[in-house]
């Protein structure tokens, strides 16, 4: 109870500070809140948006893009990560190009993506994919490399064949790291999607936010930002929830009997 109260209190304080800053038109010289829309303006703008027909279209567009990019990154990241972590040849063969591509921010891919893909839709999904891929890939590799070798030895001595080893030992043993990668990847997926939508989108929350700026609808900018934050948070919570479902042993209350 106390925990929840504290969390609400912190949100309330943020809201209050925002309200004070915008209603008093605070100008600190290096940063000015004169143009900042107030919480009241923003919430009425949010209500308008929710009642408008475009709201679902924006929401759908963004969620679909994030999901496609993220799922693709999950499949590719985990399967590449498992092979690179497990087999020296895969590591030697696949890691050099990946290591070179990794430092390139996903946003820097936008121009090339627009040139490479037939539709802006696919190019935005690609940007999201790139953003989510590396956290998933690297955490999976790390997870596999960090596996206690004795677990593998024990499994082999209990009659586990090399082929079954992946399913029986490697994947469950690396699961916690893989989920860390998925949670980080989900965050970067949203981050990259919004950047891509600002440049190439026709719908979506990033597009909504940026187009509100160009038509000088300032409260809508904040609505877009808050929605992005909310959806990012919700998807992280979803991943944490799935992780707890899939890995019940990770959240044990250790009660020792005798």
């Amino acid at each position: 109870m106390k925990r929840i109260a504290l969390r609400f209190l912190s949100l309330l304080i943020c809201l209050l500070l925002w309200h004070l800053a915008s209603s008093n038109q605070v100008d600190l010289g290096f940063v000015s809140f004169k143009q900042l829309p107030s919480p009241e303006q923003v919430s009425s703008e949010a209500l308008d948006l929710i009642h408008s027909k475009k709201f679902l279209a924006h929401l759908n567009a963004s969620i679909l893009r994030v999901l496609s990019g993220f799922c693709l990154a999950t499949v590719v990241g985990i399967s590449l990560g498992l092979s690179i972590g497990r087999f020296a040849w895969a590591s030697n063969f696949l890691l050099p190009p990946l290591e070179m591509l990794r430092p390139i921010p996903a946003v820097a891919w936008i121009p090339l993506a627009i040139l490479m893909f037939p539709s802006s839709e696919v190019s935005m999904i690609f940007i999201t994919f790139i953003g989510a891929l590396f956290p998933i890939l690297l955490n999976t590799i790390h997870g596999v490399e960090a596996i206690d070798q004795r677990l593998i030895a024990a499994a082999r001595s209990l009659g586990c064949k090399r082929g079954t080893l992946f399913y029986e030992i490697i994947i469950p043993a690396a699961a916690s790291n893989i989920f860390t990668g998925l949670a980080i990847g989900m965050g970067t997926a949203w981050f990259c999607l919004v950047s891509a939508e600002m440049i190439a989108g026709q719908f979506g929350l990033g597009y909504y936010t940026w187009s509100s700026y160009t038509i000088q609808n300032y409260p809508a900018i904040v609505v877009g930002m808050l929605l992005i934050g909310l959806l990012g948070m919700a998807s992280s919570l979803l991943i944490r929830y799935v992780a707890r479902l899939v890995m019940p042993w990770q959240t044990l209350v250790v009660k020792r009997n005798g």
Partner: peptide, 20 residues
């Protein structure tokens, strides 16, 4: 030449699978 189930192996620190 390779491990098999006829040769049981017990380690100093347990090697039980934490997820099972």
């Amino acid at each position: 030449t390779k491990p098999n189930a006829d040769i049981g192996l017990v380690f100093q620190q347990h090697s039980l699978f934490p997820w099972q």
